[in-house]
């Protein structure tokens, strides 16, 4: 591969760099893109809850 070949591949190189960058970033922050574990977040303003009011919304 010479410089002309690389010029011809500029879009592929850009695309591959973006994908690889995304892949590396995801590993760094521990992000699994398609996670079968469904999660929900709840914010309780710093109050330490111990599970009161749990709805049992998830059931088999």
């Amino acid at each position: 591969m010479n410089l002309d070949d690389l010029k011809g591949l500029k879009y592929y190189i850009g695309y591959a760099a973006a994908v690889m960058g995304f892949f590396i970033y995801s590993h760094m922050v521990g992000w699994k893109w398609f996670n079968p574990t469904h999660t929900e977040k709840e914010h309780n303003n710093g109050t330490h809850h111990v599970g009161g009011g749990r709805s049992y919304m998830y059931h088999k």
Binding site: T39, K41, H48
Partner: peptide, 8 residues
């Protein structure tokens, strides 16, 4: 922070 991550 009190943030809960809920999963089953």
């Amino acid at each position: 922070t009190g943030t809960e991550t809920i999963f089953t």
